[in-house]
Design a protein around this nucleic acid. Structure first.
Lengths: 138, 138
DNA sequence: TCTTGAACCTCTAGCCGCTAGAGGATGTAG
DNA sequence: CTACATCCTCTAGCGGCTAGAGGTTCAAGA
């Protein structure tokens, strides 16, 4: 009934080295081992790793996921903190979108360049003359 | 007439260790040194570093900037390649925006949680049951 | 029972684009 | 001539993995 790390990887779509990495940073508990030191996983591990994968796909950072997992294991608690973490993440995402949108607009103006010589290329000029605005994406 | 690394840093808003890092990866040429091995920069370095900073602020990767700098130094060439690099970057930015927007919508649905107990929290459920969609932001 | 060989193990290093710190040398103002 | 801000090099760390070396284990087939 138990899974090897490869089977867990196939079921959750999380790569084998990533699973070991999650164990190393304490996001996943150390599993049972065979006599030959190979890892064996149960259904609980599948659920937890799926949760992690989904949260990563939603862009949560590892530390946020660690907190969410802690809270998720505490069924009687009010989920206010879960709400806070998610809202904070939502704000970050909105912020990124806003900054990237400004970037997109600038780049779109720039690519209206009509293939002149470099010495009069609007893109090069645009980068060289770019003002004091602070984008810092990602 | 020449600048110390600290003065260059103040003029360009690029931090001192970052300037040394750019030199190390060959993005910035090795500058003149004093007898005591301290770096001294000229106006050309200020221009080049400003270009780099602006391009970074626009989200270009170091490798793209390396190419842009190479092309920028070739005034008679047609700027088609510059255009291509910029358009490729624009496409990436648009792609990121699209993925982040989908993420934002999902998170917004999730934060409509009304502070119940964890055991019936919609956010936790939403993460746990999250489908097979692949977001992978950033 | 033995032999394959795929999958497992640990360990280390690398990716990007910096940032931080140790520990020491240099340069300039008073 | 001294103080001390700034400079130097070198190494390690950040997040979140990914890749590779070099060796071991496990399960299926002969």
């Amino acid at each position: 009934m138990s899974l090897t790390i490869g089977e867990l990887s196939r079921q959750t779509q999380v790569k084998v080295p990533t699973i070991r990495y999650y164990e190393q940073i304490g996001l996943l508990a150390e599993p049972v081992r065979t006599d030959g030191k190979q890892r064996r996983y149960g259904p609980g591990d599948v659920r937890r790793l799926n949760f992690i994968r989904h949260a990563r796909a939603l862009g949560f950072e590892i530390e946020a996921i660690r907190q969410l997992l802690g809270l998720a294991g505490d069924p009687d608690r009010c989920c206010g903190e879960v709400h806070d973490i998610t809202r904070a993440h939502l704000e970050e995402v909105k912020d990124k979108i806003a900054r990237l949108s400004a970037l997109r607009d600038e780049l779109e103006t720039m690519v209206a360049c009509d293939h002149r010589r470099i010495s009069e290329c609007r893109i090069i000029e645009a980068i060289a003359d770019h003002g004091e605005c602070q984008h810092h994406q990602q």
